[in-house]
Computed example of a mutant assay.
Amino acid sequence: MDVKIFDSNGEGQSYVVAGAVLSCSYGSTKSKLQAPFSHGVYSRGKAQLNIMDYKPNINIMPFGLCSSMANPAVAAATAANKGVLTRILCTPVVTMPWINGKQNVLIGKYPALLNKCTNQCMYAGIISIVDDGQE
C-alpha cells in the first residue's frame, strides 16, 4: 500500500523512498535517487528519504548527457563545434536541499521528501521526482 498525502487542494502526494526516479530538464536520461544509508524509517521495505538527501553522485546520480549552455563544458564543446549544440556527460551540481518537503513529518531530523519536491542544478536544470520509488 502506497502512503499518500493530500494537500488542501486535493492533490495527492507521496513519500519518496530509495530507488525513486529523477529527471533533469537538461539531461538526456532519468536516474535513480540513491540512499547509501537509511535514516531508520522505511516504507514498503525501502528507506524513506528526507530533503537533505541531495548530494551529487551520492544521492543524485548523472542524467546521461547535459544540453544546458549554462554548463561550461557544454558551452565550450558547442563553441568548438562551430555553434552546434554538443552535449557533454552530465555531472549534476546541486548545492541545496530539496524544496517543498513535508515540514511536519521528520525523517532523521529533517522534513520528509515528497514526490512534489524539486531541486535546481547550478547549470540551470530543474530536477524533479517522476516516480516515488514505492512501486
Score class of each variant (00 low, 15 high):
30 K>A: 15
39 H>P: 00
63 F>G: 05
103 Q>K: 09
56 P>A: 14
124 A>I: 12
66 C>T: 13
39 H>E: 03
59 N>W: 09
33 L>D: 03
89 L>P: 15
74 V>L: 00
47 A>K: 08
98 W>P: 03
56 P>H: 04
28 S>N: 05
102 K>M: 08
26 Y>P: 04
44 R>H: 08
114 L>V: 15
121 C>A: 06
102 K>L: 14
55 K>Y: 13
124 A>Y: 05
34 Q>R: 12
105 V>Q: 07
47 A>H: 07
34 Q>M: 15
115 N>A: 15
33 L>W: 12
71 N>L: 03
58 I>S: 07
119 N>C: 11
95 T>R: 01
91 T>Y: 13
104 N>K: 02
28 S>G: 10
130 V>H: 06
105 V>P: 01
62 P>Q: 02
53 D>L: 07
79 A>N: 05
65 L>H: 01
29 T>P: 09
98 W>T: 12
87 R>G: 12
88 I>R: 03
43 S>C: 14
42 Y>N: 04
92 P>V: 10
122 M>T: 15
37 F>N: 12
98 W>S: 13
124 A>H: 09
117 C>D: 07
75 A>H: 01
90 C>Q: 03
67 S>P: 06
42 Y>P: 04
30 K>I: 11
92 P>N: 11
73 A>G: 01
33 L>G: 06
65 L>Y: 06
73 A>F: 00
116 K>R: 14
118 T>A: 09
129 I>A: 03
64 G>L: 04
129 I>L: 03
91 T>M: 06
74 V>P: 00
117 C>W: 07
84 V>L: 11
121 C>T: 04
119 N>L: 10
65 L>D: 09
